[in-house]
Design a protein around this nucleic acid. Structure first.
Length: 798
DNA sequence: AGCACGCCGACT
DNA sequence: GTCGGCGTGCTC
């Protein structure tokens, strides 16, 4: 038998199958197996994407070397999906196969030098072990190695290693009868106090064994050496048992059957989805419901229906660690049947959760973007919550959109997809309008609460509190009032750091990152100027680096500065700041939210990570410090992003009995995105924005593809971009629009210059092949230091 | 992507 | 005559 293998070499020339003979002893290999194969002189990991009896290859086939896992990690469905998706998004198939699995399953490659002769084994460089060639840099050693190889005294070996470690726990089993242990206890030396404790416990609690090693150690206060001694003497037997790391052990699943009654709208939505599950339809629903209308409750009921049908359910949420509350709800409803996958877990935890899914031990999977590849079988329902979120699109290769993958999987499993949002993406909403998706509306707030009152504060005319121009008097007064009433406040500012740039008032110099075309941000906590693109850091200047003048100012505002201002203006208030800088450590996110939930602070000040999904009943005021930051971006969807963000963050106010209030500070109070966010009028926004998109020839009226060309040399990037543009122009015709090439809005990042071309088209059958050609050429261009990226339906085109 | 092969100039 | 620089081509 012959295996078709996709090898772990991400390059255009190797982006195809290589065939291998399956040796007799590896008959357990199947489509989806992870294997190690000889590839040229090396060994590489690969995935079996097909098995056949014959081959058209005329050369001699090599044998598969190893089948890595007992159970093939990928299902045939996912293998097929990898091919479809690779073609669609211009990625290598192997890149997609790799991203379907937890990172720890990626191979580790090593090259070692193994001594052959006895004489060589004694050499200093080996120290009794093979030499790791990746760690050799010394010139003399390299010369010595070459000599050894030439004289046949040593050889190079290629290793493929598995990084994944299964967590093992030790269990201790008894070997004797109770009476025998009593005998041993009697004969024990008087000084062996701890052994006595252990034996005592065995005799008294005989039935409690076998027992966890860690439990024995903690309960009896003995050290592990006592256990080791006991094993040595034959009293106990140690057994290693594989254990799953449980990321949710902190949650106590109540598993109470809290059947929340659905209102008529919810019931109608649920019935439609339920019918579709039962009829096994690959149908897409757009569940559009205002904040607080109980979308989650509909999801959970729908998942129950899928489970009743003995089918499984997949639910995506935007970067799950952001919504621990959501995970908790699902976990409470479905208990141990739930597996979670998101970036907040350690690599090991992710691997364990993934294995539970693969083995069929979880019926419900909740996760962020990459969870769309969960190896779940027999899917009866896919839910994508907050479907408009841009985080569902991966920003680097493979540039897939989880929504597109969901639609592919739904076709395979013949199950419905539910896209839920208060502010659907224009693309999805337009499809619903056309009838390609079924629109389900939830217009009533489930708790019958009125929507919060939203005020716009015009920063052009308002007076500011304090010396800085960040916090207006009305906003500060409102905060004071809420704090006096022991209520809580959430403040949103979409910029971290203290001041976003340094300006010299003498010569106009702005301090920029040496590697990127962006100004450096002042960070007060670390006392450094930082680049938010590449992480470059340098000391805060005292004089202008250009003209040595001392008249330098730090302008623009960030979360750190606003925190300082708040501390000055409201010395009695306790403030928690939440941004990338304060949440870098694992678990710090949850810690901040928990302490805010316990009312250990009055104000939660943060970047957009606080806008989503948080549910704090005591929050009655939400303040947006500057609504214009996103609007000023030169992107076709910046209005949509602004509207979404403002609507989302407004929804954080007044979640329980207390009525909420929202205050939005802006320099553009007449902008339609901001005005319509104030009235929380999605429908009008949709109509208005569709007209804008129509006039600008933007999605959803046009499809878009973005080609980005980068190089360390600005001229060669620009030149290559023009070559590509000419190529496109030769083959594509109106109404297709080719924009650019233009330098990106941040023209240089990490010393790479960025040029881009945007193709907008309605129907362009040649484009797909043309882009694949461009991708082929990119392989050659790479040798000249050029990188070319193709992004199908980009989320950002700056 | 690696790795080898092969061609060419530079050095023992 | 041998070493090592880089361009070219292949990997079942």
């Amino acid at each position: 038998m012959i295996a078709q293998v996709s090898v772990d070499v991400a390059a255009k020339q190797t982006d195809r199958v290589f065939e291998y003979h399956i040796p007799q002893e590896l008959t357990d290999v199947a489509v989806g197996s992870r294997v190690v194969v000889p590839f040229g002189r090396r060994k590489v990991q690969g995935f079996v994407v097909g098995i056949s009896k014959t081959t058209s290859y005329t050369g001699k086939l090599k044998d598969l070397l190893v089948v890595v896992d007992e159970l093939p990690p990928l299902t045939p469905e996912l293998i097929t999906l990898s091919k479809t998706l690779a073609d669609k998004i211009f990625a290598y198939r192997i890149t997609i196969l790799q991203s379907m699995l937890p990172r720890v399953m990626r191979a580790n490659y090593r090259k070692i030098l193994v001594p052959i002769t006895e004489e060589a084994k004694k050499l200093k460089i080996f120290k009794g072990e093979p030499l790791d060639l990746n760690e050799v840099s010394n010139l003399n050693t390299i010369i010595e190695i070459k000599k050894l190889i030439k004289n046949n005294q040593a050889k190079i070996e290629y290793l493929v290693e598995n990084k994944a470690k299964k967590k093992q726990i030790a269990i201790y089993l008894l070997t004797k009868t109770k009476a025998e242990y009593q005998q041993i206890l009697k004969g024990l030396r008087k000084t062996a106090k701890k052994q006595q404790v252990l034996l005592d416990n065995i005799v008294k609690n005989y039935h409690e064994y076998p027992k966890l090693g860690s439990k024995i150690v903690s309960e009896l206060d003995v050290s592990s050496s006592v256990l080791r001694a006991a094993v040595k003497k034959g009293w106990l037997v140690k057994k290693e048992q594989e254990m799953y790391r449980d990321p949710l052990k902190d949650f106590e699943p109540r598993k109470k059957k809290i059947q929340i009654k659905l209102n008529s709208e919810q019931t109608h939505a649920l019935n439609s989805i339920g019918k579709s599950i039962q009829k096994r339809e690959a149908k897409t629903f757009l569940l559009e419901g205002i904040t607080g209308s109980g979308k989650t409750e509909v999801y959970l009921h729908a998942i129950s229906i899928a489970l009743e049908q003995k089918r499984n359910a997949l639910m995506l949420v935007p970067e799950i660690s952001l919504t621990p509350q959501m995970v908790k709800q699902v976990k409470e409803r479905f208990g141990d049947n739930v597996a979670v996958l998101h970036s907040g877990l350690s690599e090991g935890e992710k691997y364990d959760e993934w294995r539970r899914i693969r083995r069929g031990e979880a019926q419900v999977v909740v996760g962020a973007r990459s969870a769309i590849f969960a190896p779940l079988k027999n899917i009866g329902l896919i839910v994508i919550d907050e479907e408009h979120e841009s985080s569902y699109k991966q920003n680097d290769t493979p540039r897939y959109h989880a929504r597109d993958v969901a639609l592919l999987r739904s076709k395979f499993h013949k199950c419905p997809v539910v896209l839920g949002s208060a502010t659907p993406s224009l693309a999805s909403r337009a499809r619903a309008q056309k009838g390609r998706y079924e629109l389900l509306l939830l217009t009533k707030r489930a708790n019958q609460k009125a929507l919060p009152k939203v005020d716009l504060i015009d920063l052009k005319t308002v007076e500011f509190a304090g010396a800085q121009f960040d916090l207006s008097i009305p906003l500060v007064d409102a905060i004071k009032e809420k704090i006096a009433k022991k209520e809580q406040v959430i403040l949103l500012l979409n910029r971290r750091g203290f001041a976003s740039f340094m300006l010299c008032r003498n010569c106009g110099f702005v301090l920029k990152c040496p590697n990127c075309d962006i100004s450096l941000t002042l960070h007060k906590d670390t006392q450094q100027m930082q680049c938010h693109y590449c992480g470059h850091k340098e000391p805060i200047p005292r004089r202008c680096p250009n003209c040595q003048s001392e008249k330098i100012r730090f302008l623009g505002t960030g979360t750190q500065k606003v925190q300082e201002e708040l501390e000055n203006l409201l010395p009695e208030a306790k403030i928690l700041r939440m941004d990338v800088d304060t949440t870098r450590r694992k678990g710090s996110y949850k810690k901040i939210l928990d302490s805010f939930g316990d009312h250990q602070a009055d104000i939660l000040l943060g970047t957009q990570m606080i806008a989503k999904g948080l549910d704090f009943p005591n929050v009655t005021l939400v303040g947006v410090i500057n609504a214009d930051t996103a609007l000023s971006l030169p992107d076709f969807n910046s209005s949509e992003k602004t509207f979404d963000l403002l609507t989302q963050v407004s929804g954080r106010a007044g979640r329980a009995e207390k009525t909420g209030r929202v205050m939005i500070q802006t320099y553009n109070p007449d902008n339609y995105a901001i005005k319509l966010a104030q009235s929380q009028d999605y429908e009008s926004f949709y109509q208005k924005e569709m007209r804008v998109r129509f006039q600008g020839n933007y999605p959803p009226f046009f499809y878009t593809t973005l080609i980005t060309i980068t190089s360390k040399n600005e001229q060669s990037a620009a030149k290559e971009a023009f070559v590509i543009k000419r190529k496109l122009m030769r083959h594509l015709h109106a109404p297709t629009i080719i924009l650019g090439p233009t330098p990106s809005s941040v023209a240089k990042i990490k010393n790479q210059y960025y040029y881009q071309i945007l193709v907008k088209y309605k129907h362009e059958p040649k484009l797909h092949d043309l882009l694949h050609q461009i991708q082929d050429d990119a392989q050659l261009a790479q040798k000249r230091g050029l990188n070319i990226y193709i992004d199908n339906e980009p989320e950002r085109i700056m």
